[in-house]
Write a protein that binds this DNA or RNA. Sequence first.
RNA 1: GCACAGGUGGCCGAGCGGUUAAUGGCAGCAGACUGUAAAUCUGCCGCUCCUUGCGAGCUACGGAGGUUCGAAUCCUCCCCUGUGCACCA
Length: 413
Amino acid sequence: MSDFLPVDEQMDLLQKGAAEIIRVSDLRERLEESRKTGRPLRVKAGFDPTAPDLHLGHTVLMRKLRHFQQLGHTVIFLVGDFTSLIGDPTGRNVTRKPLTREQINANAETYKEQVFRILDEKATEVRYNSEWLGKLDYEGTIRLTAHFTVSQMLERDEFHKRFQAEQPISLHELLYPVMQGYDSVALNCDVELGGTDQRFNLGCGRELQRHYGQKPQIILMTPILEGLDGVQKMSKSLSNAIGFNEPAGEMYGKLMSISDELMWKYWALLTDLKQSEVSELEQAVLGGMQHPMGVKKRLARTITAGFHGEMAAAGAEENWARMFQAGETAENLEEVSVAYANVAGPEPNTIRLPKLLVLIGLAASGAEANRKIAEKAVKLDGETAAGVVVAIGPLPARMVVRLGKRAKVAVIS
RNA sequence: GCACAGGUGGCCGAGCGGUUAAUGGCAGCAGACUGUAAAUCUGCCGCUCCUUGCGAGCUACGGAGGUUCGAAUCCUCCCCUGUGCACCA
């Protein structure tokens, strides 16, 4: 009586790339029930609107959300605005400043705009948790927290470690899992998705739902994607991330810089290839049938195309090969215009190279630019820059400036 | 509130009156190598200026003062973190 696929087929898709499901049998049961009654499952994932810049690590979870969506279930995109209004002191950093309402809304918009490149906007329910958390007064909060004990909270690995290391844990940090759990109650969730690092918080939802007479939600955890270094999780602040909004060339280049070993994980988590297909590829490389570089190029191209389209991805590939394999200069480099006055050298028709490097964004500071020039890491139109002061042709002058892997075209006028 | 231990560069962590922009590790950047990488080796790794020099200046060791020719290092006050104590009063 319903349009839902047979449960086995649904499970096949949903289990792919999932790190852990609590519990698989429950999910199966719930899917069967949904199919019988024709009621789609309510699937929630929460997002923190403090850092609206998404990267590939986030897509792991979103791809999984999309799978639910494809199967006809209801995906709830929950903005954790209430949390951000208070300010989250997680980690040893100084307490983060609470965001203003305007900032949160702006961030949420940015977030949505990026997320809906993967999710179907029309089929997604967007909610803000201030909707119910904001109404919870002091009494409600106390009643809510009474469902948990201190030792339950300290079971959470992160708290446990910090406690052992005698690092601060502020009281309201303990409330975050509680609030997140309450979200599940308020939304009457069937399933909640999160990274494996969210295990504890996700579990709090189950716990609370029991207390509120709801069936505990099923938890589906997605693996944490390692960043470009292959060791730490992908994160903007560790600068090992590939952002949604990066140009095709950047994206492609960064993907090519991952280690051969890491590549398999990326294949599995960031493409639509089935696990068996990834394993086949891996065997082919191990057996010498395929070159790892070729396979990595395909990976970089596939992922880049997902964001920028086939054309752009092909272009990025071509440029990359030119730059790094043939040692030539890429086409379509970013052009940056610079006023001569800002880079003027001591003599007419000369410029100060460090200033130029800073202005076009290849060096963070003049001091750094100086060092790089001394290290002979800077090339102008293919020639290693000999010194700080460089002669240029008549204005407007145009040259390809390269520092290490990155290159830009400077137009001086 | 009291006692004790701490707060050092992106992170961890030395230094405890003077060649100190501050040992070391991690991260980062560049060069070599290579199939882009990874691994390895080498160099760099606060900022500004120019006459690019083993140049000059500025800023930095929780905060504010002070002692001293000279302080991350000593003193005073304050802020922050952790641990312990807090019953008879």
